[in-house]
Amino acid sequence: MAPVTTGIAGTGSAFMATLKRDLLIASKRKNDMLNPFMFFLIVASLFPIAVTREPQQLTDISAGVLWIAALLASLLAMDSLYRSDFEDGSLALLLLCPQPLYFMVLAKNLSHWLVSGLPVVLVSPLIAYMLKLPAESYLPLFLSLLVGTPVLSLLGSIGVALTVGLGSRGLILAVITLPMTVPVLIFGTLAVQEPRFGADLAGYLAILGAQLLAAIALAPLASAAALRISVN
């Protein structure tokens, strides 16, 4: 039997295959897709009830509320990222495929963000209206969430990869992940609030973009290493 040297799948096609597979799984499990979205809606609607009904006060807190709701929604959605693959053994297959694990992790992260993060971003202007966010802040909110939520997913992926083998995950994922999201939260909310007072939106988006690039470059490496530790 000749050694296998030809016909090995390219990294690009393996990336696409993994992306398609995860999207296919998500399309068959509509709940996984819908729940983060519902969570975002509900949490954001709780604030006016608990904090204030005054439009002016709502305006003041809306940027922060929207960002924190998006942050929590993305965190809650993370748990499903590697769990079923860990339990049914697909993760071991992924670790043992000849392609760099970095790209496979990136494919899984991308598909996960597309089904759980993107819907939240898309619906955010509607919730922003309900929370009396000034109309000129809709675009900054939308753009900052669009650039910022993938960073949350990439960071969350590290936490999930570290904890996927644990019997009782409980809140440990949140304890690990939430402190790491502070920089995104800072510049995400600033990007929504500051342009109203004359600051340049592009600057904040650039910083968020830089965070996204850094996260794309580094976070999947950490996730891949964490997966190798967890599958053992």
Partner: peptide
Amino acid sequence: FLLLAVIALRSAMDDNDKAAKACALL
């Protein structure tokens, strides 16, 4: 908070070897 997270991760894992590597990465 991050230091507490490392401690929490360690205490959540019962396999010493795994915990060592996971905490190292974190």
